[in-house]
Computed example of a mutant assay.
Amino acid sequence: MKSERVPAAERLLDLVIALSHTRHRMTKSDIRRQVNGYADAVSDESFDRMFERDKDQLRGLGIPIVTLTDSAHEDDVGYRIDMTEYSLPPVNFTPAEVGVLSLAAQVWQDSSFATQSQRGLTKLRAVSDLSDPAEHTGLALRVRGPDAAFGDLLDAITDRIAVQFTYRAANTGATGERTVEPWRLVARDRGWYLIGFDRLRQAQRSYRLSRIIGTVHRVGTPGQVQIPQTIEPQPVPTTEVVLALTPERASALRARSEPANHLGAPADRDVVRLEVTEVGRLAEEIAGYGEHVLVLEPAELRSAVLRRLRAAQSWGEI
């Protein structure tokens, strides 16, 4: 029974391992005999083509394969990887850089790369001077999955059918029924919005999915909704937020803010400002940073953060 051919990627990896661990060099005959995958070559010419192709591919990836000849037999050619050129320099990161890497790793938390990203982050922390886990408080990105209504609304847009749902208004907090012809789902300020035609108001409206209460119901039959070719973006009310940050902390907030000035800010803090559409969600994020983020403006956000911190403290006292 004929054995299965070794995948090219596996053969390349085995070749890198062999050439990086050889004491001096490996000749072509050594490579053909010892490296997994080259036994698949049916002739000397086939092996030569395979090896030359692999060698060129590895060099193209930046792997320094050097050619060596024997001093007594110049036609006896060998190969190895120059480890002085291939080795990476010592890894050193500042607290802010480790924070950014933490954010990147958390982005993959719900994907097939979750294990690998967390393992890599653990290794980076191990070779840095940041051994105290508290150093990273609040640096992990809080990535929310799609809101509960996302799937139903996306299906409704695909089927071109109207929907009905209960909605909590941002400005008053009042709830009411909305009947909407859904047009598009867009991401803004770390949240999802539905853009569509409100049948009661007879106008285009935007709805933040996190304010939809309960189940989204279909109204009518598929194919009735006509989606415009061009949809004018609708302005979303925002709130200006001013924060005082501990130096080199709260990387996620820094990334989407800009420097600012504030008379009441502590001298040892960095002051930043940003525009947000959902104060409540920002309060959840800020509370995770603990003492490293102070809310200077607005007062409603400061109160929301304090409520969450006091609730967390009370849980710790139980």
Rank of each mutant, 00 (worst) to 15 (best):
E135L: 15
V127C: 12
A169W: 00
K123S: 14
Y167M: 03
E135T: 15
A96Q: 06
V143W: 11
N171Q: 15
N171W: 13
A134F: 10
A169R: 06
A140K: 00
A104V: 07
G99K: 11
Q116F: 05
T137W: 03
A126Y: 09
S112M: 09
L101T: 06
A140I: 00
P95Q: 07
P146M: 09
F165D: 04
D159L: 09
D132N: 11
L121M: 09
L154K: 09
Y167V: 03
R119V: 05
V98W: 04
N171D: 15
A134D: 14
D132E: 06
L124C: 05
T115A: 10
T122W: 05
A148M: 10
A105M: 00
P146K: 09
L103M: 15
T115C: 00
D110A: 13
S87P: 00
D147Y: 00
L153V: 14
F165P: 01
P146S: 10
E97I: 07
Q106V: 01
N171V: 14
D129T: 13
Q106Y: 12
A134N: 10
E135W: 13
R144I: 06
S117A: 15
R144E: 09
S117E: 03
A104S: 00
S128D: 11
Q118H: 10
H136M: 14
D110N: 13
R144N: 14
S112R: 12
T166W: 07
E97K: 08
Q118K: 11
R142I: 06
L154R: 11
A148F: 09
L103K: 12
A104F: 04
L101C: 04
T94F: 08
L124K: 06
H136T: 04
D159T: 03
S128R: 11
T137I: 12
D147N: 02
F165T: 02
A156E: 06
Q164T: 14
I161L: 01
A126I: 03
E135F: 13
R125N: 07
L88I: 01
S131L: 11
T115W: 02
N92K: 14
L130H: 14
Y167Q: 02
D129K: 12
F150M: 03
Q106E: 15
L121T: 01
D155K: 12
T115L: 08
N92L: 12
R168L: 12
Q116D: 12
D132S: 08
Q109P: 07
R160I: 08
N171R: 15
A149Y: 01
A156R: 02
V127K: 03
Q118P: 00
A156Q: 05
F113T: 09
V91I: 11
L101H: 03
L153K: 03
Q164M: 10
A148W: 06
S87I: 11
R142E: 04
D110T: 15
I157E: 02
F93M: 15
D147V: 00
P146R: 10
T122V: 08
V143G: 09
L101K: 04
A104W: 01
V98I: 15
G99W: 12
L121R: 04
W108F: 15
D155V: 10
S87H: 07
S112C: 05
P90F: 05
W108P: 00
A149C: 05
R144D: 12
S102I: 07
A156P: 05
Q109D: 13
R142D: 05
Q109L: 11
L101G: 06
T115H: 07
F113M: 13
I161N: 00
R160K: 14
L139Q: 02
R168C: 14
Q118W: 03
